[in-house]
């Protein structure tokens, strides 16, 4: 078992024939992901990486039965692409593109929600169910199959965390990068209950960072609903106030959104909080009793 995606998930790629889309779609195909086609306007009817290209998402969905779209279109077109996917009946849009305007994401996310479409990202590494399905840009080889679910705002910390978990002799069910933009799709509070319900997931790694209050909301949810052990790291304990730290959403405004308040809230909710990402693997070994 796993959450959201597995070996049977049919995936299309929006921005299929572009440089990034091509490179990563190829990697996903090599991993075993069922990419059934892609969309690039005005290239419909062509074949790319051995898969059909369509002019519109509607046509791609109708022809292939895809339920997930991986989005690589340039930043200015992300909002449009997400809304097109929602309109076409896609169930989950995984938005990899970095630098989408925040206003576009407000509109697109609201529209997706109205149509019952889930979104991940933007500016995220994507989602991977170990040894089954990779929809994104993460290095597939580090994700060994196992019983730990992972959710993270940061791409490289997703790799770091998964790598440590695997080096300790455990593995990953599904790992999800949710992105660090001010407005993102699925977040801790939607994904944590999915891991709770997944019988194969025995523990959860949650990686957060400064800015916003999604981690605080997650602490509340964990206290009330999550019985599985959770290990958490919050990046940015040493970040200065008022500075954007790489991710558009990673900023401590005034006294809100500090790592300290998030770590305290999570600890109070019974989460094992580590002060350095170097401790994630050991902490998982501890909670899973090895």
């Amino acid at each position: 078992m796993s959450i959201l995606v597995n070996k049977d998930t049919k995936v299309i790629v929006q921005g299929f024939t572009g440089k990034e889309g091509t490179f990563h779609a190829e990697q996903c195909l090599a991993y075993g992901t069922k990419i059934v086609g892609g969309v690039t306007p005005n290239k419909g009817g062509q074949e790319h990486l051995g898969k059909p290209v369509f002019n519109t998402v509607a046509e791609a969905v109708k022809t292939t039965g895809a339920t997930v779209s991986m989005i690589f279109v340039p930043p200015a077109f992300v909002g449009d692409a997400v809304m097109e996917a929602a309109e076409a009946g896609i169930e989950l849009a995984v938005i990899i593109t970095e630098g989408a305007p925040v206003k576009d994401m407000q509109m697109a996310k609201a529209y997706a929600t109205k149509h019952g479409m889930k979104t991940l990202g933007p500016n995220c590494p994507g989602i991977i169910t170990a040894e089954e399905c990779k929809i994104g840009i993460m290095p597939g080889s580090i994700f060994k199959k196992g019983n730990v679910g992972l959710i993270s705002k940061s791409g490289t910390l997703t790799y770091e965390g998964a790598n440590q978990v695997c080096n300790e002799g455990f593995g990953i069910t599904t790992a999800i990068g949710i992105g660090g933009d001010p407005i993102i799709g699925l977040s801790y509070n939607q994904i944590l209950p999915m891991f709770e319900a997944d019988p194969d997931t025995h523990a959860i790694v949650m990686i957060g960072e400064i800015g916003g209050d999604l981690e605080i909301q997650a602490a509340k949810l964990i206290k009330e609903q999550i019985t599985k052990p959770v290990v958490a790291f919050i990046a940015g304990q040493t970040a200065p106030k008022g500075k954007t730290m790489g991710h558009a959403g990673a900023i401590v405004s005034g006294s809100a959104g500090t790592a300290k308040e998030k770590m305290e809230a999570l600890e109070a909710a019974g989460v094992k909080v580590v002060v350095s990402p170097a401790e994630i693997g050991k902490a998982i070994a501890e909670v899973l009793g090895k």
Binding site: S154, L157, A235, Q237, M245, G246
Partner: peptide
């Protein structure tokens, strides 16, 4: 960005 902050920490 996340790993960069994590490295500082």
């Amino acid at each position: 960005a996340g790993l960069a902050m994590g490295t500082m920490d």
